[in-house]
């Protein structure tokens, strides 16, 4: 009997060590995936930086393209992306935040709000080229904006709307119920509760989410392709009805559509680097905002 117990113990030990080796393999597999992901990111960033950094100088950032876009800079594309992003903000932020406030603070929660939420989330999965076509049909044609900053900005706005609404709702939901109750109990109307207690608390979260959405929109090509981005323009856009050049579209042209692709390859990489830097900058802004928000919460103000 003793030997039986002993042998059982040995079997258990064996199983344990077997498990341990399984675990070890599992951990290493997980580590490998992490390394792989970082490696991919690293290769992309390294490739773009190493090939693009060479062309970046003051002239590249401040001059328009010259000589059939084989020389000069990308200034109009930077300006165009900046303008179109501004319009995207002006369109998507009030609409998205407003919808989120209604959904979270006013609407009676039930089937309808669930349906709306589901639709909004699914909207996030719609391919961006579909948004582009929709934007062309609605803003360019039906609204008669023509291919323009405003049509492209609105289209990008639609694209970011799901992100804005979801992030805003998330931010509103994290505002403690106790604040709302405290405010209501002092005789505040619903709007006063939202304006004085809920929004101040939620705005940093709303901004963070919105900036991340914008960063994605700023790098999109498909939605602006048919709604206002131009191959080349000799001058900067002078109104919201003007067509514009944009970084992602410029990159697309320089890497696939140009007549002397190999000659302009460095410019393409330079454009990619500027775009990457821009998106990183936006993400960094989101991170800093979040940090400031956390500090403020810690301080209780």
């Amino acid at each position: 009997m003793k030997t039986e117990a002993l042998s059982r113990g040995i079997v258990l030990e064996k199983k344990k060590s077997e498990w341990r080796s399984y675990e070890l393999v599992g951990f290493w597999a997980l580590r490998l995936t992490l390394v792989l992901v970082l490696l991919i990111l690293g290769v992309i960033v390294f490739d773009i930086v190493s090939k693009g950094a060479g062309v970046i100088n003051w002239e590249f950032l401040t001059q328009p393209p010259r000589v059939g876009m084989t020389e000069g800079g990308i200034f109009p594309a930077i300006v165009g992306t900046f303008y179109v992003t501004m319009i995207t903000i002006a369109f998507a932020v009030p609409l998205g935040v407003g919808a989120a406030i209604y959904l979270n603070e006013y609407a009676v929660q039930g089937k309808f709000t669930r349906l709306v939420r589901m639709s909004v989330r699914n909207l996030a999965g719609v391919p961006s080229i579909v948004f582009g076509l929709f934007g062309m049909a609605i803003f360019v044609k039906i609204f008669g904006f023509g291919p323009s900053l405003i049509a492209a900005g609105f289209t990008l706005g639609l694209l970011t709307l799901p992100v804005t609404v979801t992030a805003s709702e998330e931010a509103l939901r994290t505002v403690p119920k106790a604040y709302r109750e405290g405010s209501f109990a002092l005789g505040a109307t619903r709007w006063q509760v939202v304006r004085t207690v809920v929004l101040p608390r939620a705005i940093p979260g709303i901004l963070t989410g919105t900036i991340l959405g914008l960063a994605r929109a700023a790098g999109e090509t498909a939605p602006i392709l048919a709604t206002g981005a131009a191959f080349f323009l000799p001058h900067l856009p002078d109104s919201i009805r003007s067509q514009f050049m944009a970084l992602p579209y410029h990159l697309f042209i320089m890497s696939t559509q140009h007549h002397a692709i190999s000659q302009v390859r460095p410019i393409a990489y330079g454009t990619a680097l500027v775009l990457l830097a821009l998106v990183c900058l936006l993400n960094l802004a989101a991170v800093l905002l979040r940090k400031r928000y956390r500090d403020r919460v810690a301080k209780g103000l």
Binding site: L186, G300, L301
Partner: peptide, 12 residues
């Protein structure tokens, strides 16, 4: 007026 179970001053 009302006072709640957990003190709930606003973060102000």
């Amino acid at each position: 007026g009302m006072v709640f179970q957990h003190p709930n001053p606003f973060p102000k």
